[in-house]
Design a protein around this nucleic acid. Structure first.
Length: 949
DNA sequence: AAGTATGTCATTTTT
DNA sequence: TGACATACTT
């Protein structure tokens, strides 16, 4: 038996990229089950929900495939599996013992936006006090005026962002003399001020009965260590848990480790009730210290190193430390490159637990693989350089995949979907998008926050929506609840329970002063909406509600300006207010939909950040912009953990920082993490790795090697510097190769996200003027808008129900609830809601009894819901969204739902009318998946299905 | 109206 | 160090 499966031993595994980490974790879990552990007594902890879902999935699929006996035995208990994120675990702990902890069991978790709002308020409260009582920052505030306020707010927020470390810092005051950082009265005063802000913040949260994300960890730790009830809580935990497994252990921060530490301390010390019973509880930690890339959110590599070292001390013969050596992911060339490179630059010889040591691993895959570096001459890190580079990458992609026919030999011709471009940041994303689009290369941008969902943009969208339609209760509700108007929950509840069905009327008639002033603020805007440009009204609204101050961060200002620009653009096209609103609604929907697009099986090049790529793998990986050096963190505040004690330093002068211990340490840690980030990027590649970047000679004719290029130069001396000043391709593993841009195919696919976010990231698609135009498929067909308002809303409700069912978000048994929730969101009037409910449920009942429900609607492998596409055909570019695609037996079946009532005789004629629409859908799907297609219309109210093509 | 000087700020993202 | 915006010249 493989050693790490031994259920009597605690294990810590250092599992490098591609060594089958999840597989090992799952096997361990199963071996614990097989050795007789009860499923509900095994606790597995991950850091993201996605990771938790993947692990559960993997365990169940192995069990179903290989261990049918076991599967049969535990089948009923599967819902009891405890595979959760650390935060969910903490939250459960807190709520379960809320009363013991002196908390309200119904405690709510603040979202980030609200938490920040509350924090800013707290700082202002504290600063006001400071000014009124002439505290030690009084002079500072008086001298520098408003600038001083925002500077202090920035500094205090920087400290605040280092939570939960900051809290330990406060708890540890006054600090002992520290050789790294001599005592500094200014720092102490600043911390004192921070302490006051923090106290106000805590109090505000207490009054609201909420906690924030940081509190979850801190409170959980307190619950099991410094609370009078700690022993009881630990005892209860112990009773319910025999084994703990932790995934991605290198991403653990100190608080999280302390939680796990406290929970398992008894086990490790060889004591405890379990041992007395003859049970051996175990800990199983898996991670790769070289993939620790989340320092900026508190992850601490030293934890992994320290635990690794002390594991044996704790457990003696019951402990196993395993270093996985095999790599199942990459071809030999890539592994050879990785071993040479990181063997050189990752070496923690000294006493620095935040550094990592690289030990080589060995390939298991047969074949060769290829690693290339493409250099071109250019100025470093300018927009021009990145645009050129994007062109180069696009050309290379065409030469790799442009013919579209997958070749037999790996690396010769691949699918677009095999290629991934990994970026360090999103700054130059636009350049890459433009390049791929102009070359008709299908691509998907994975991850990132949608512009329209940023809180400030979302709010302004609602403002526009409200102006377009003042009886839109939802928009008004959002406005009133927002920090710009700021009605309290209680007042809002009162308003909603009012008799009027129109919220705005209730607001007008309300006696409360806050409501009056809200009404007086909003009412004039409605009257003026007809004459005054929308962008001016929005700006005025922001000024009158102090919106610019609420959204004070630079990025938010930029977003607001961008939004104003978009609105301005619409107005130039002389669009009416309702039309603008419609467009905004569309753009939001496109954002919602992005989660539904299954990027994995979409044949499109993926673009994502290195951070986002963690845990994934791709046959071909592009790593552009290797000459870029990320700007080092410029903050005047530095909080860090040294030898298990939190340290704090504050220095306004940037050049002074280079001399101070804590700042030097931070810089060194950042440099180390930069290496690890490069490691993660490189190890995503399975068959082929292509790195690109610009080089330029300096005034003395020397090549300046910067960024990740310096890593390559160190381990392969001369590889970069000897090729100065000439564009060229070379392969580190040997032969040279030249990229030849190929011809462009006539179809271009993009996700709607990319399409609608054009105003945000990219310029318009450059097309020969006057020759082409964007056409909505339904627009070209000329249907879809004749239906009454009732049916267009009902139609969208139906579609959302179907989408929910297909995506698995709505279970057939839970249909009534889901429908109810959907209607509640869209319809306020009780009568209308009741009517809609009746129609939808009646139709759904009929549908469920038909074969179509199982065949089309239910989730299925190789199926897509609300699939967006863009198709060029002649001089028109069609865009649209396909209700459902199911690929079975090599045929892609395209379904379009028509939800309005249809008489028996009408169906055939209607189907003929929609023929063109469906034919476009089929063509797009055919190009996208490369399969034969069939097109169907499903009249859902009958229900009846007609094959159209 | 166009050109010039000055100032400010930069990445990664989960719960 | 460079991109971008704003303020100030000519």
């Amino acid at each position: 038996m493989t050693a790490y499966l031994d259920p009597a031993k605690s294990v810590i595994i250092s599992a490098p990229a591609g060594s089958g980490k999840t597989e090992k974790l799952s096997r361990r879990y199963l071996s614990l089950l097989e050795s007789g552990s009860e499923i509900e007594k095994i606790l597995a902890i991950t850091f993201t929900e996605k990771a938790a879902a993947e692990m559960k999935d993997r365990i169940l699929s192995i069990m179903r495939r290989e261990k049918t006996g076991l599967f049969g035995k535990v089948r009923e208990k599967i819902p009891l599996m405890r595979i959760t994120t650390i935060h969910a675990f903490c939250r459960k702990l807190i709520t379960r013992f809320a009363l013991d902890l002196g908390l309200n069991p119904a405690v709510d978790v603040l979202d980030e936006f609200k938490a920040r709002q509350l924090w800013t308020e707290s700082v202002y409260d504290a600063l006001r006090e400071e000014r009124e009582n002439a505290g030690c920052f009084f002079e500072y505030l008086r001298h520098k005026g408003i600038k001083g306020w925002s500077a202090l707010l920035g500094t205090l927020t920087a400290i605040h962002q280092k939570r939960p470390y900051t809290e330990f810092l406060l708890a540890g005051l006054p600090t002992k003399p520290d050789p790294l950082q001599p005592a500094n009265p200014e720092e102490e005063q600043l911390l004192e001020l921070y302490r006051r802000c923090f106290r106000i913040y805590q109090e505000k949260k207490r009054i609201l009965g909420t906690i924030d994300f940081n509190d979850m960890e801190v409170l959980a730790l307190r619950a099991i260590t410094s609370n009078p009830q700690s022993l009881n809580i630990l005892y209860a935990f112990d009773e319910h848990t025999d084994h703990i497994l932790v995934d991605e252990f290198q991403d653990t921060n100190s608080v999280q480790w302390r939680i796990i530490d406290a929970l398992t301390e008894e086990w490790r010390s060889g004591l405890g009730a379990k041992r007395a019973e003859g049970k051996t509880p175990t800990v199983f930690l898996v991670g790769d210290e070289k993939q620790s890339i989340y320092m900026f959110r508190g992850a601490n590599v030293s934890v992994f190193q320290e635990v690794k070292q002390r594991f044996r001390e704790w457990l003696g013969g019951e402990a196993l430390y395993i270093e996985a050596k095999e790599n199942y992911r990459s071809l030999p060339a890539i592994i050879h490159f990785t071993n040479t490179l990181f063997g050189h630059i990752m070496d923690a010889s000294g006493d620095e637990p935040w550094k990592t040591t690289y030990s080589g691993f060995s390939p298991t895959r047969q074949g060769e693989g290829k690693v290339e570096v493409i250099l071109f001459e250019g100025r470093e890190n300018s927009k021009m350089t990145r645009t050129r580079e994007a062109e180069l990458v696009a050309g290379k992609i065409i030469s790799l995949a442009g013919r579209g026919t997958p070749g037999p030999a790996a690396g010769q011709h691949c699918r677009y979907g095999d290629i991934c471009i990994l970026l360090r940041n999103r700054t130059h994303l636009a350049s890459f998008e433009t390049a791929l689009r102009t070359h008709d290369i299908p691509y998907v941008v994975v991850g990132g926050i949608g512009f329209y969902d940023e809180p400030e943009v979302a709010l302004l969208r609602e403002f526009v929506s409200f102006l377009a339609d003042p009886v839109d209760n939802f928009s008004l509700f959002v406005l009133l609840r927002s920090p710009l108007v700021g009605l309290s929950e209680a007042v809002l509840r009162d308003l909603l329970s009012g008799r009027e069905s129109i919220l705005f009327d209730t607001l007008r008639d309300s006696a409360a002063a806050v409501c009056r002033s809200a009404f007086e603020l909003l009412e004039p805007f409605i009257a003026r909406a007809a004459g005054v440009p929308l962008s001016i009204l929005i700006e005025e609204f922001l000024t009158r509600t102090a919106g610019w101050e609420v959204f004070w961060e630079r990025q938010r200002h930029a977003n607001i300006k961008k939004f104003l620009g978009i609105i301005g653009g619409y107005e130039e096209q002389a669009l009416s207010l309702p039309e603008i609103r419609e467009l905004l609604v569309l753009s939001r929907k496109s954002n919602e939909a992005k989660a539904n697009v299954n990027t994995e099986s979409l044949d499109a090049v993926k673009i994502m950040t290195v951070h986002g790529s963690k845990g994934l793998q791709f046959p071909v990986v592009f790593l552009p912009s290797l000459d870029e050096t990320p700007p080092s963190k410029a903050g005047a505040v530095c909080i860090d953990e040294v030898n298990n004690a939190v340290r704090f330093a504050y220095e306004e002068e940037a050049c002074e920082r280079t001399k101070q211990g804590l700042f030097i340490l931070r810089k060194a840690k950042e440099a180390e993490e930069e290496k690890r980030l490069f490691y993660v990027a490189v190890t995503r590649a399975m068959d082929r790795l292509i790195m690109t970047g610009a080089v330029k000679n300096d005034c003395k004719g020397q090549t300046r090697v910067r960024g990740a290029f310096s890593f390559i130069e160190q381990s392969f001396p001369g590889s970069i510097s000897e090729r100065k000043g000439r564009d060229g391709v070379f392969s580190i593993t040997g032969e040279a190769e030249l990229a030849t841009p190929g011809g462009a195919p006539g179809v271009s696919f993009s996700t709607e996200k990319a399409f609608f976010q054009e105003p945000v990231y990219t310029e318009k698609v450059p097309l020969p003027p006057g020759t082409e135009s964007w056409v909505d498929v339904t627009e070209a067909v000329g249907h879809g808008k004749k239906k009454s308002a009732d049916w267009s809303l009902l139609g969208s409700l139906f579609h959302r129900v179907f989408e929910g069912i297909s995506a698995g978000g709505i279970l057939p048994g839970d249909l009534e609830h889901a429908v109810e929730a959907l209607i509640r969101k869209e319809v306020q009037a009780e009568k209308t809601a009741a009517r809609y409910r009746e129609i939808i449920l009646a139709d759904m009942r009929k549908l469920r009894n038909s074969p179509f429900f199982d065949e089309i609607l239910l989730p299925a492998a190789n199926s897509y819901t609300e699939l967006p596409f863009v198709l060029r055909k002649g001089s028109a570019i069609f865009r649209g969204r396909i209700d459902r695609v199911v690929i079975r037996d090599g045929i892609a079946r395209v379904y379009d739902y028509k939800t309005f009532p249809v008489r028996e005789k009408e169906a055939g004629a209607l189907a003929r009318q929609y023929r063109f629409q469906i034919s476009i859908y089929c063509e797009a799907v055919g190009k996208l998946f490369g399969t034969r297609t069939k097109g169907f219309i499903l009249f859902t109210s009958r229900p009846e299905m007609i094959e159209v093509i």
